[in-house]
Design a protein around this nucleic acid. Structure first.
Length: 331
DNA sequence: AAAGTCTGCAACCGCTTTCTT
DNA sequence: CAAGAAAGCGGTTGCAGACTT
C-alpha cells in the first residue's frame, strides 16, 4: 500500500499567509529543518496543508531568497536561458541564486515577455517576428484581398492572417504603411549585417531558427575576455569553442561600425571559423553573483536605464505605431 | 475625490514524476 | 511490483495597490 494522505483538506486554511503563520512555520523549520511536509503543519500548529507550507517556505520564507528588483545581468541570463530551456522555470531558477522559479516565472510574464513583444521579438522562439515581413511581401503583391490571404493559409503563419484581417478591416492604411516601411527598412539593415556572419543566411525564411548571441551582452557564453572585446584585437584562442547549430555570434554595435578589414570583421566573415559552443558549460555553471558583468564595458547595471535596456535587449528594434494594438493579433 | 482599469505577485490548481510502503 | 502519497513543476487566478480617467 501507499502512504496515507498528507492532510485532511477539510477545514484547512487557504489564501494569504498571516505574519503569525509565517512565524510558526519559520520557527518550526529552524528547529527541525524543512521536509516532511505531511506532518509539518500539525506539528507546527498550522491549519494549512503541507503543500501550502512547502510553497510558502520555498517561495517566500527561505532565508536565502533574494528580494527586490532583478538586475540587468539576471534579466539577460533569464532571457538567454529561456531561449535554450523554454518555460523550464525551475531549471532557470537553478542558475539564478536566490531567485525562485515562481518569481522568475512572474517576472518573465509581467516584464520580459512584454518587452520582447514590444521590440518585435517572439518571446517563445526568441526570434524576430518575421511574419510581419512576410505580411509585407503578401501585401505588396498586386492582388491583395482577404480571400487571397485565406488561400495562403497553408503557407503563412496564422498570426499574419489575423493581423492582415485586422488591418484590412480597420482600413488604417497609414498604420499599415508605417509598419511595413519600418519593418522592411529594419530587416534590410539586419540582413545586411547577417550576410557577413557565419552560419547565417540572407534568405529570410531561414532566419527564424537563428539565435543571435552578442559576445558583450552574453558574456557568460564566451571566454572571459570576449565579453570585453571592444577595442581589442580578437585572439584566435578566445573564440567560443562551440556554438549551438542555430546560434550565431552577433557583433556588437561598435563592431558593426568598424572599418572593413578590421580583425573583428575578418573574424566574423571567416567562413572557416568553427563555432563549437559548449552548451553544457552554460547550463552547468551557476552565476557566481548577480553582478557578474560588473566589469563589462557595455553593461553597467547601476547606470542602465529602462530605455537602455529595451534598446540593448532588442536586436531587431522597431516600433509598432500607436493605434495598433499588438494584443489584437497576438495569439 | 471617486470609479474604473491596469499591473504585479503570492498563492492555488492540477498534472507529472519520484518515492515509500 | 503495484498502489498511492509526496514532491516538483508550470499554468492560472485573485487580490491589493498603483495608475488613469
Amino acid at each position: 500500500m501507499g502512504r496515507s494522505p498528507c492532510c485532511d483538506k477539510n477545514g484547512l486554511k487557504k489564501g494569504p499567509w498571516t505574519q503569525e503563520e509565517d512565524l510558526k512555520l519559520m520557527e518550526y523549520i529552524q528547529l527541525h529543518g524543512p521536509g516532511n511536509w505531511r506532518t509539518l503543519p500539525k506539528n507546527a500548529g498550522l491549519q494549512r496543508c503541507g503543500k501550502s507550507c512547502r510553497l510558502r517556505w520555498t517561495n517566500y520564507l527561505r532565508p536565502d531568497i533574494k528580494r527586490g528588483r532583478f538586475s540587468f545581468e539576471e534579466e539577460e541570463t533569464i532571457i538567454q536561458l529561456h531561449s535554450v530551456l523554454g518555460n523550464k522555470w525551475s531549471a532557470i531558477a537553478a542558475r539564478l541564486p536566490g531567485r525562485t522559479d515562481n518569481e522568475i516565472k512572474n517576472y518573465w510574464n509581467t516584464h520580459i515577455r512584454k518587452r520582447l513583444l514590444r521590440n518585435g521579438i517572439d518571446p517563445v522562439t526568441h526570434t524576430p517576428r518575421l511574419d510581419l515581413m512576410d505580411l509585407s511581401s503578401i501585401l505588396n503583391s498586386a492582388q491583395l484581398n482577404i480571400s487571397n490571404l485565406l488561400n495562403l493559409q497553408t503557407l503563412v503563419n496564422p498570426e499574419v492572417l489575423q493581423l492582415a484581417t485586422l488591418l484590412a478591416s480597420s482600413s488604417n492604411q497609414e498604420n499599415l504603411d508605417l509598419i511595413l516601411n519600418n519593418q522592411m527598412n529594419h530587416m534590410n539593415r539586419t540582413l545586411n549585417n547577417h550576410d557577413q556572419l557565419p552560419n547565417c543566411t540572407s534568405n529570410p525564411t531561414s532566419l527564424p531558427s537563428t539565435q543571435l548571441l552578442n559576445p558583450e551582452s552574453h558574456s557568460q557564453y564566451f571566454p572571459p575576455d570576449m565579453a570585453n572585446m571592444n577595442n581589442q584585437i580578437i585572439d584566435e584562442n578566445l573564440m567560443p569553442q562551440s556554438l549551438p547549430d542555430n546560434h550565431v555570434i552577433l557583433p556588437s554595435e561598435s563592431d558593426r561600425f568598424r572599418a572593413p578589414g578590421s580583425n573583428i570583421e575578418n573574424k566574423y566573415n571567416n567562413p572557416t571559423s568553427q563555432n563549437n559552443f559548449n552548451l553544457d558549460s552554460v547550463l552547468s555553471t551557476p552565476m557566481s553573483s548577480p553582478t557578474l558583468n560588473s566589469s563589462s564595458t557595455l553593461v553597467n547595471s547601476s547606470s542602465t536605464t529602462d530605455d537602455d535596456r529595451e534598446t540593448y535587449c532588442s536586436i531587431f528594434n522597431f516600433e509598432i505605431p500607436e493605434g495598433i494594438e499588438f494584443d489584437d493579433f497576438m495569439l
